[in-house]
């Protein structure tokens, strides 16, 4: 349970890191908080020849409001997002979700970019990014590109990130403020802080008749990548929810995911569970949308 030997590089700027990546692309790993990578190194599931420690790159640690989205530098730690008043105001779904990420000790070290780049389908942040249709900024020596989660997350622990590329920034769209908007993040894990068996997120906007005018729904932990439940989003538009409609959504959600079973829960259990969780998320988001209206009205 000790990492095998590697050569350690510690760039102090993005450009320096990208140069290293270009040079050592064949056999290197990027580390920052190390909360996912160090266990992998300790178990020698990965034995890179070079380890590029980007944790000293100060320019990638920020949370700021841009045009329509909150930009979070890849090296921003979970705890900094958790304590951000800007995110609490503009992107509260992220605050709800981040509390589910590991434990305090993990959130004190783990970075936002690391969580996204690790591409764990049961992780909370990829699910939130997918729900809100966020974006990921990726850089290499030659170019910078902006990709959506649907193109970035390929399958379990595999992303479109090339060996010479670095995740620079994560963009979470600013959520609609004010009355008649609600969100919800629900997760079931064996113990608090464990990996989620299934997670569901919902953002709902109601019109002034109380009919749903916008719905964003996604699930995680039950599919090789976080999944938008598009059919359910469309079904909700222009409607008031009824028990029958929610049941239909729960069923169609269970049908469109592809969970794996393990010691902690069989595939069938997770399939069943995710329908129930998305139903609960929709119900809570709607309840909060009404609460929002009472507060304003």
């Amino acid at each position: 349970m000790k990492p095998s030997k590697f050569k350690y590089l510690k760039p102090s700027s993005v450009n320096e890191a990208l140069t290293y990546l270009e040079e050592y692309a064949d056999d290197c790993k990027i580390i920052s908080g190390g909360q996912s990578l160090i266990p992998v190194l300790n178990m020698r599931l990965s034995t890179p020849e070079f380890l590029i420690d980007v944790s000293g790159i100060k320019e990638l640690n920020y949370i700021r409001e841009e045009d329509g989205y909150i930009a979070i530098g890849a090296l921003t730690r979970h705890v900094e997002v958790e304590n951000s008043l800007l995110i609490k105001e503009k992107c509260p779904l992220l605050i709800d979700a981040i509390k589910w990420v590991g434990h305090k000790q993990i959130r004190n070290r783990g970075t936002i970019g690391g969580s996204i780049a690790h591409g764990d389908p049961s992780a909370e942040l990829p699910c939130v990014l997918t729900t809100l249709r966020g974006e990921i900024v990726i850089a290499s020596v030659d170019e910078e590109e902006v990709v959506g989660p649907e193109d970035f997350f390929l399958t379990y622990l595999l992303t479109s990130l090339q060996t010479n590329q670095l995740v620079k920034e994560i963009r979470f769209p600013i959520m609609t403020q004010g009355e008649r908007v609600g969100h919800s993040f629900v997760e079931v894990a064996r113990r608090h802080g464990d990996f989620g068996l299934a997670i569901a997120a919902a953002v709902i906007e109601l019109d002034n008749q109380g009919l749903i005018q916008k719905a964003q729904l996604a699930v995680g932990g039950v599919n090789p990548v976080p999944l938008i439940i598009e059919e359910a989003e469309e079904l909700l538009i222009g409607k008031k929810v009824t028990e029958a409609l929610l049941k239909e959504i729960a069923e169609l959600t269970s049908e469109c995911v592809d969970p794996e079973g393990d010691l902690h829960g069989s595939a069938d259990y997770r399939r069943e569970l995710i329908g129930t969780l998305l139903k609960r998320a929709i119900e809570e988001a709607i309840a909060r949308a009404w609460e929002g209206e009472e507060k304003v009205g």
């Binding site: 580390i31 190390g34 909360q35 160090i38 000790q105 993990i106 070290r109």
Partner: peptide, 10 residues
Amino acid sequence: VRGCLMLAVQ
């Protein structure tokens, strides 16, 4: 933080 999830060099 967890001491085992960090390299001393970090």
